[in-house]
Simulated scan of single mutants.
Amino acid sequence: MIKDVQQQISKGLGQIRQAFMGIVSRAGTASVQLKGYEDEVLEDIEVIQQVGFSSHIPVDVKVVLIPQQGKTSKAVIVATKGGKIVIDVDEGETCIYDQFGHSVWLKEDGTHVEGDLFVNGKIQAKKDISSEGDVMDKKSTMQAMRDTYNSHNNGPSTSTPSARM
């Protein structure tokens, strides 16, 4: 009797698909196509991402799928791994990055941004701002302003400024 019950339970559990891995064959942000076990093709698999984060899952990336209610047709992607660019972080660090080499890396010594930064809004700093390149506004650079000031005079009988910028 117990053996029969165990066989029925095993048979039932065998019909419930457990979490598994696949490889992306068609990329996307909301749904993707995957290659599963033994060349199994899964169409329009939903991508579940955290609110506030959105990423386009590239082709050939490994993904972890969880079949809701044990059904492959209701599987959702909950994690990815193995893009062309991978950043390994140290203990306590967090990094958001893309497959183009841009990153925002939160490290012990501060926030490191790799790539151009475009800001639509004010930038306010409570401490110094420094640059190894030019600082520019709509008209010119600060270096051009210095060059103009340092070479100017107020007429034929005056010299250039004694205190140069």
Rank of each mutant, 00 (worst) to 15 (best):
K3D: 15
K3N: 13
D4E: 15
Q7L: 10
Q7D: 12
I9F: 13
K11I: 06
L13W: 01
Q18I: 05
Q18D: 11
F20T: 08
F20N: 00
M21N: 01
M21Q: 03
V24P: 00
V24W: 00
G28P: 06
T29I: 14
A30N: 15
A30T: 11
A30K: 14
S31A: 09
V32A: 07
V32Q: 03
Y37C: 01
E38K: 07
E40W: 01
E40A: 05
E43W: 10
E43R: 12
D44P: 09
D44L: 08
I45P: 08
E46V: 10
I48M: 15
I48D: 10
Q49C: 08
Q50E: 15
V51G: 02
S55Y: 04
H56G: 06
I57G: 11
P58I: 04
V59M: 03
V61C: 13
V63K: 00
V64E: 02
L65F: 05
P67M: 11
Q68K: 11
G70L: 12
T72K: 11
T72N: 11
S73F: 03
K74A: 07
A75N: 07
A75H: 01
V76N: 13
V76S: 11
I77H: 04
K81C: 03
I87C: 03
I87A: 06
I87N: 09
D88Y: 02
D90T: 03
E91G: 01
E91M: 10
T94F: 10
C95T: 14
Q99Y: 06
Q99W: 03
Q99L: 13
Q99C: 14
F100G: 12
G101F: 01
G101W: 00
H102N: 15
H102F: 06
H102M: 12
S103T: 06
V104Y: 13
V104W: 06
K107W: 03
D109S: 10
T111N: 12
D116K: 02
F118H: 14
V119K: 13
V119Y: 06
V119N: 14
G121K: 02
K122G: 14
K122H: 06
I123G: 09
I123T: 14
A125C: 09
K127C: 07
K127Q: 11
G133M: 02
M136N: 15
K138P: 02
S140N: 08
T141L: 10
T141A: 08
T141D: 12
M142T: 14
A144C: 05
M145W: 01
M145C: 05
R146W: 02
R146P: 02
Y149A: 15
N150S: 13
N150P: 04
H152E: 04
N154W: 01
N154G: 15
N154T: 13
P156C: 01
S157A: 03
T158K: 10
S159Q: 06
P161K: 09
M165C: 13
M165Q: 11
